Amino acid sequence: MNLGKTLFAQLMEFVPWTSFARIVAQYGGDSRVRSLGCTEQFRAMAFAQLTYRESLRDIETCLLANQTKLYGMGFRSPVKRSTLADANEGRDWRIWADLAALLIRRARKLYCNDSFSVDLDNTVYALDATTIDLCLSLFPWAPFRSTKAAVKLHTLLDLRGNIPAFIHISDGKMGDVNVLDMLPIEAGAFYVMDRGYLDFSRLFALHQAGAFFVTRAKRGMNAHRVYSMPTDRTTGIICDQRIALNGFYISQDYPEQLRRIRFKDPESGKTLVFLTNNTVLPALTIAALYKSRWQVELFFKWIKQHLRIKAFLGTSENAVKTQIWIAVCTYVLIAIVKKRLKLSHSLYEILQILSLTMFETTPINQLLPNPSTNSEPPISPIQGVLL
C-alpha cells in the first residue's frame, strides 16, 4: 500500500537500492561522507529532472518549501546547494553510469516482447549521436570548434520500447564512427545506422561477429555489380544487387560481397541506396528497417525537450556526466514504472503529470488511470516530441 507516501517516494521504490549500494561501495561513493550520501544525491538530481528544476538554488528552494515531507521522500536532512554541487563535482560519474546500465537491463526485459513497425523476431538497434552545445570558456575540457564546446551522446537504441542499450558520452571532437569499436556486439541482431558510420573494416568486424547491419551507401563508392536479383519496381525497389568492392585496400577491409538495394521512397520521391550484409530478408524489409532508424533521432529530441541535459548544474566533466547519466536513469525509471503498472499513458504524459504532483500522496495508478474509451488515443513518447 502507498497510503501516505508521496508520489516521489513511490517512484523511488522502483530503484534497485540493494544493487545500487553495491555500486556505491565499488567506487567508494560514500567514503568520508557526513551528509548527502549517494542515495540522497540521486534523489535530489532525479527530483530536478522530474520537476524541471533549472539550478541548484531552484532545487534547494523547492525542497525546503516542503520540508515536512523530505524524510518520507528519503532525505535525512534538507538539501543544500553547496553540498549538492560538491557531490556532483567530486563523486565518480561511473556510479550513475552503472546504475543506468542496471536499470536499462531491467527495462529491456520488460519491453523485449513489444512489437515495432517491422515484423521481425531479431533485436533491432538504431545507432546515432547527438551534440549538446556548451560554452567553451566554462567547459574547456570539451572542445568542439574554435569558439564552441560540446559533448556528444552516442546512443544505441533498442527499438522495442525505445530503451537505450548503450550510451557513450564524449567531447564534441570524437568521430561518430569510432563508437563502433566500443559497441557490445550481439550475434543475430540488426544494427541500423546512417552513412556517417560507413567504415568497411569496422562493418566487416561486425559481420564476423554474426550481426547484421543496414546503412546507406555514399556517393561515388568504388564497387562493381556481381549479379542482380529480380525486383518489382512498383514496390519502390529499383534494384537488389550483390556487389564487391573495388580497390586494393578497400577490398581488404571488406573482402566479401555486400548487398546493395536501390529504393525510391513513394512518399518523398527520394532515391536511397542501402548496404547490408543480410541476404535473406526481402528488400522492402531492409528499407523499412532503415526507416525505423528515425526513432533514435526522435529519442534525442524527446530527452532534450523533456529532461534537463541542456542547462548544467556544474561545469566540470564529472558534473556534466553525472547530470546526463542521472537524466538517463530517470528516463528509464519512468519507462519501468509505465510497464510495471501497465499504464497506457505516454512517457511524455506521465512526466507532465508527475512534474506537478511530486508531493502528493495519491497512489500512482490512481493518479494515472487508464483514459476512457471516448478520449483521444494517448500520444506515444516519440510522437509527443513533434507536438
Rank of each mutant, 00 (worst) to 15 (best):
R76M: 08
R43A: 06
Y71N: 09
G196I: 05
A142E: 03
A205F: 10
G4T: 02
Q383C: 10
R233V: 12
L134M: 06
N278Q: 11
Y249D: 09
A25R: 15
L387V: 14
N318F: 13
H345T: 09
I286F: 06
D98E: 15
L36I: 03
T276R: 06
R202C: 11
F200G: 00
H154Q: 12
T234Q: 14
V118E: 08
V385K: 00
L275E: 03
D253P: 01
H154Y: 08
E54N: 11
A126R: 04
V124H: 08
L206K: 02
E317R: 12
K310Q: 11
H207G: 06
S375N: 08
P363D: 07
L103Q: 09
L7Q: 05
P377N: 05
P282A: 11
K173W: 05
D121C: 11
E267H: 13
Y191D: 04
A288I: 01
D253T: 00
D194H: 12
A87E: 00
E256A: 08
F263R: 06
Q67L: 09
S372W: 02
I132M: 11
K342C: 10
W93V: 00
H168P: 01
N2H: 12
I353K: 04
Y111H: 15
R259F: 06
G161S: 00
D92Y: 13
N246G: 15
E89C: 09
T373Y: 13
V118G: 12
T51Y: 01
M221E: 11
Y331N: 07
F42L: 15
I250G: 12
T357L: 10
Q252R: 15
L36C: 01
H306K: 08
L347Y: 01
A85H: 09
Q323S: 05
S375F: 09
